[in-house]
Amino acid sequence: MTSITTPTILMVPGLRDHVAEHWQTLLESKLSNAASVPPLEHDKLSCAARVAALDAALAKIDGPVILVAHSAGVMITVHWARQHSRKIHGALLAAPADLETPLPAGYPDIDSLAQNGWHAIPREPLPFPSIVGASRNDPLASFERVAAMAKDWGSTLVDLGEVGHLNPAAGFGEWPMAEMLIHELV
Rank of each mutant, 00 (worst) to 15 (best):
Thr2Cys: 08
Thr2Leu: 11
Ser3Thr: 15
Ser3His: 13
Thr5Ser: 12
Thr5Arg: 09
Pro7Gln: 08
Pro7Cys: 12
Pro7Asp: 09
Ile9Asp: 00
Ile9Glu: 01
Ile9His: 01
Leu10Val: 12
Val12Met: 05
Pro13Ile: 09
Gly14Val: 09
Val19Tyr: 03
Glu21Tyr: 01
Trp23Asp: 03
Gln24Val: 10
Gln24Ile: 11
Ser32Arg: 06
Ala34Cys: 10
Ala34Glu: 07
Ala34Asp: 06
Val37Ser: 05
Pro38Ile: 15
His42Gln: 14
Asp43Leu: 10
Leu45Gly: 11
Leu45Lys: 05
Leu45Gln: 12
Ser46Val: 14
Cys47Glu: 08
Ala49Val: 12
Ala49Ile: 10
Ala52Met: 06
Asp55Gln: 11
Leu58Arg: 01
Pro64Cys: 09
His70Lys: 05
Ser71Ile: 01
Ala72Ser: 15
Met75Cys: 10
Val78Pro: 00
His79Leu: 08
His79Pro: 02
His84Val: 11
Ile88Phe: 04
Gly90Gln: 03
Ala91Phe: 04
Leu92Met: 08
Leu93Lys: 02
Ala94Trp: 00
Pro96Asp: 05
Ala97Met: 12
Ala97Leu: 07
Thr101Leu: 11
Thr101His: 12
Ile110Pro: 01
Asp111Tyr: 02
Asp111His: 09
Ser112Asn: 11
Leu113Glu: 05
Gln115Asp: 15
His119Phe: 11
His119Tyr: 08
Ile121Ala: 03
Ile121Met: 08
Pro122Phe: 01
Pro122Arg: 01
Arg123Glu: 15
Glu124Ser: 12
Pro125Gln: 13
Ser130Thr: 09
Ser130Gln: 05
Gly133Cys: 13
Gly133Arg: 03
Arg136Cys: 05
Asn137Met: 09
Asn137Asp: 15
Leu140Ser: 03
Leu140Gly: 00
Phe143Arg: 02
Met149Val: 04
Asp152Tyr: 02
Asp159Thr: 07
Asp159Met: 06
Gly161Ile: 12
Glu162Met: 10
Leu166Met: 15
Pro168Gln: 06
Gly171Arg: 02
Gly171His: 06
Gly173Lys: 07
Trp175Lys: 00
Glu179Trp: 00
